[in-house]
Design a binder for these strands. Sequence first.
DNA 1: TTCCATCACATACAGACTGTATGTAAAACC
DNA 2: GGTTTTACATACAGTCTGTATGTGATGGAA
Lengths: 202, 202
Amino acid sequence: MSRAKTKAEQHAATRAALLREARRVFTATGYADAATEDIVRRAAVTRGALYYHFRDKRALFEAVVDDVARGIADRIDAASMPAKDAFDALLRGTHAFLDACLEPPARRIYLIDAPAALGWHRWREIDGRHAMRTLRAGVEAMLAEQPDPALSPEIMTYLLSGALNEAVLWINEAKDEKAARREIDRTLPLLFERLFARTRAR
Amino acid sequence: MSRAKTKAEQHAATRAALLREARRVFTATGYADAATEDIVRRAAVTRGALYYHFRDKRALFEAVVDDVARGIADRIDAASMPAKDAFDALLRGTHAFLDACLEPPARRIYLIDAPAALGWHRWREIDGRHAMRTLRAGVEAMLAEQPDPALSPEIMTYLLSGALNEAVLWINEAKDEKAARREIDRTLPLLFERLFARTRAR
DNA sequence: TTCCATCACATACAGACTGTATGTAAAACC
DNA sequence: GGTTTTACATACAGTCTGTATGTGATGGAA
């Protein structure tokens, strides 16, 4: 039926195939050790196609990172939709973030390789449109419900983001991953309560 | 006077020169884009010497990372020595950590490139002997003074480490670095107070 | 003192990989 | 219907890592 593909369709199909296989190879070997030849072979094209669609290997990786980050953010948004208050939304979002980032593509591509390959600044630019945006919204909602002039939403967002990223990697390398995850799940609500507590004097 | 160098001296001198120049080049260009030829030229040897002293480029990088991490830990230890209590020690140590990591070599080599180039697990192994060891000691001292069965020292250490690492990179990329640093300095004691607070009911 | 083994490199080379330059068939357009 | 543009494929040049081999100096043994 779709024997006769239009050019635009072919263009999109090849690009999608490159992104799909690039994600697999980057996940398996990491950015530095990924050979572009491997990617294009799996996508059933040649390196000419890759360099037609992307300026260089880094640009391909950046596109994959953006995709991965968007996927994480989507899962967070979906999970925190049915929340009853800001605290609940933050907790649900956090759990969704951990779930998503514990999967190999997100872990390897988004948490480990992206900051080094793209630079911390560029990585945070991308993340700021996705997962970090949801975290910032959660923090701001908390501070809207319980105003606390001592806490800067921006700083809290970055500190929490750093802590959560590290939590993912710690859970992943733990001897007993399930137990580690439970411990984190138990600890995080406690920390949120304490961090966002109103000053004792009120 | 030292015209006639013994073999052991020569060995140590060349190794030290390689480490010194490698640190410079890795800091300037990052691990991936650093050419071993650049390093050995500055050290006034050839690549043969490099591969005699180190198994490969990664091993050289790992040795540099270990050096950098040791330097950070030394500064933390020195800064937290004259502390009057656990809280004071944690704060002093944290400030020393920020000061040390804000310098380019630590930032680029230790915070950005090391996790990707060595793998998170290996990076944490090294860090666990240095900066993270001091942080863990600080956390454990806090929990010794104010016991809190709800807080696992290991988890608190990893979460705080992640938050502090991110704080460094955030300060570094801020438009006004001095102001960003002041904001972090103002926020951290607040967070420590709240995180390590005994449960309200006592 | 002399001989030999080992050390601490230097040199030469093979292999892999990235990016670029060029060629080309099919589609799109006028 | 002829020409231009697209979406690749192919070929090539340059760079870089790691390895294999050569070599002079040093240190120990006899």
